[in-house]
Design a binder for these strands. Structure first.
Lengths: 359, 359
DNA sequence: ACCAGCGCTGACTACGTTGTCATGCAACGT
DNA sequence: ACGTTGCATGACAACGTAGTCAGCGCTGGT
């Protein structure tokens, strides 16, 4: 099968047009086309326009493979994400791709499997095979495996899940947001706030535990021991059955909304009214949270802002984005705690501070 | 800055090793290295091993850019996905990447923005710029915009959202699953089943409406008019407030679990017990569904199976997967309806058919 | 009048891989 | 002894782009 153009007649070529074809049509050299396409200097306005229209006419699209071959850069980053549809990870990934595309960089995803320790390593390996300029570990689970990396491809993480990688979300909102939620409960008059945490292998879970603990320590209070769940409503329910045997429990901060849902169910079944007898907060503000019974006081994460800021670091490390690096926007500190009806002052203080009415 | 190796001393090269380097170390030609790497025939076992160990020693990784440049194929497909963390789209995307990687093909994602009609077109354009062998439109929303495609890059869709594209999920489970749920309700003795649908712009929503309608028509029943929501619990709640004015309503099939949640809340507030007075089904089987009050009867989708089957079509079109195409597995028809406690016979038949006890 | 500098353009080459073709060698049948 | 066949290997070209450098015409300073 000859790939070259047949000598006579209309050249019915299959091959997509290249710079050489554009150059021929515009009557210039291939190099000049390259200059126009890359917006280099030293091209007269006249030639520039001629090349542009020729490119448009042929439907020319620069070949990224050839470009990557010679520059050694791919204009792509790899993202290792946990293969789950959970609200947090999924939202993070969307935010990541948005911010990346805005910087002219494409995203190649590889999903891991929770519980398979080496799936992170496999994903990294796969991405390195594909050719990427950098890799971001967005998997929030630390299975304790060290990732062997290519020295030429820097490794980053969203939430310090990998020691070999630089964390792009250093000052992220997890701990701080949870602290806000706990302080809300303490401000309402609760003496201590119990905590239903996420799995200890998840860094966001650890951060939230930290924020919960910090809120107590700032007031010189010793927090009760946290209970570990696995993000599912089932685990929140089970935790509730254990915690609620202690009559001192009046306020519980859950590490996500799903566990809060399960916990509320445990309360209901135990005959403990929410929020009259027990106050509950969630984390994530999933769409359903406002329609729990009662509507859940929870924390809304700022994925977009955090990711954009973190990606700014990465882009600067890569030596400037191809299409002009947007400066990371100033850290706009929007309110994160969404107060609904699952929180109220404890029963013994009900008359002092009347509960807010949301609706 | 000279890129070539300095003449004297240790060659402290920055450039990653190529086949030429491996060849030099193994004492063979570069072409032979290519043969070994690509598992071609006509290489003696001895040489093969020598090359392998040389490649391992240098940490050689074939350069995909160079390969793509000459073969004209990238080993990548682009996926246009809706930028949302909703359960369905997110699950689909994970399943898609899993199946694709198993076939040795990488995924480049581009997210759209719901409500921005041209964001699909922009995403496609962006993916074409990146260089992909095919594009899958996984965005479930049809904004009615036609997508201009490159003739060299075939366009596929997951759920026929784009007329220019071939649908990979032709016999998918949406309609059939919904039909199963509705038949479950009819079997329980309900005369008619109301429907809270998703937005009419979403194809999965249309398919579910279709399944709901089909279940009625198969029994010669005229279904009541469907009510359209927007997937959120809020819309399910609002729909409930409208529907529940009609005392004839005894069973409602919701197009997703979140709307079912909102609808249940509307029932509760209206003093209508679920399932004693009104039966409700959801769709998706999100983790929280089992912990609603009451636990939700819903439908579990088979993303993995559907996507693997659909991808089989694509891979065969692309002319066989690089690393050996796995044949699409036989369509294992696992049960999809998960019966929990939100469904029961209507009040007037309660004594005839006792409700199942799940727990 | 001459050269230096600037703006603009093109020729040539390298990038790392695969495709094509040629070549060397051994085994085999005549 | 000879050609034929098949395996194993290498030489060489090509893919489409960007980097390097040379060269053009013009301007301005000496």
């Amino acid at each position: 099968m000859p790939l070259t153009t047949p000598p006579g007649g209309t050249p019915a070529r299959r091959r997509p047009p290249g710079m050489t074809d554009v150059a021929r049509l515009a009557g210039v050299s291939q190099k000049t086309v390259s200059r126009v396409v890359n917006n280099e200097r030293y091209v007269s306005a006249e030639v520039r326009e001629k090349v542009r229209s020729a490119a448009r006419e042929l439907g020319f699209r620069p070949n990224t493979a050839a470009r990557a071959l010679i520059t050694g850069r791919f204009g792509r980053i790899g993202v290792v994400a946990l293969g789950t549809a959970l609200w947090g990870p999924a939202s993070l990934q969307v935010a990541l791709e948005r911010a990346t595309r805005a910087a002219g960089i494409a995203v190649v995803v590889a999903h891991t499997v929770e519980g398979e320790p080496d799936s992170v390593g496999e994903a990294v390996e796969w991405l390195l095979d594909q050719g990427v300029d950098a890799i971001i570990i967005a998997d929030p689970v630390d299975e304790g495996v060290e990732v062997r990396s290519d020295p030429a491809v820097p490794l980053y993480s969203l939430g310090r899940s990998v020691p070999e990688a630089e964390n792009l979300l250093a000052g992220a909102s997890n701990a701080e947001s949870m602290r806000e939620a706990v302080e809300h409960l303490l401000d309402l008059g609760h003496e201590r706030v119990w905590h239903i945490a996420g799995p200890a292998t998840w860094y966001p879970a650890c951060d939230r535990v930290e924020g919960w603990r910090a809120a107590h320590e700032a007031r010189g209070i010793e927090p009760p021991p946290p209970v570990e769940g696995d993000w599912t409503p089932a685990s929140g329910y089970a935790a509730g059955q254990r915690i609620l045997r202690d009559p001192a429990v009046t306020a519980v901060a859950c590490a996500n909304d799903d566990m809060a849902l399960g916990f509320i169910r445990a309360c209901t079944e135990a005959g403990l009214a929410v929020p009259d007898r027990v106050s509950v907060t969630g984390f994530d503000d999933i769409p359903a949270a406002a329609y729990f019974t009662p509507p859940l006081t929870t924390v809304c994460q700022r994925f977009e802002a955090d990711v954009i800021r973190g990606l700014g670091i990465l882009l600067r490390r890569l030596g400037g984005a191809p299409t002009g690096a947007p400066e990371p926007p100033p850290h706009t500190d929007t309110p994160r705690l969404v107060v609904r009806r699952s929180t109220a002052p404890p029963a013994n203080r009900r008359n002092e501070a009347p509960g807010k009415d949301a609706r």
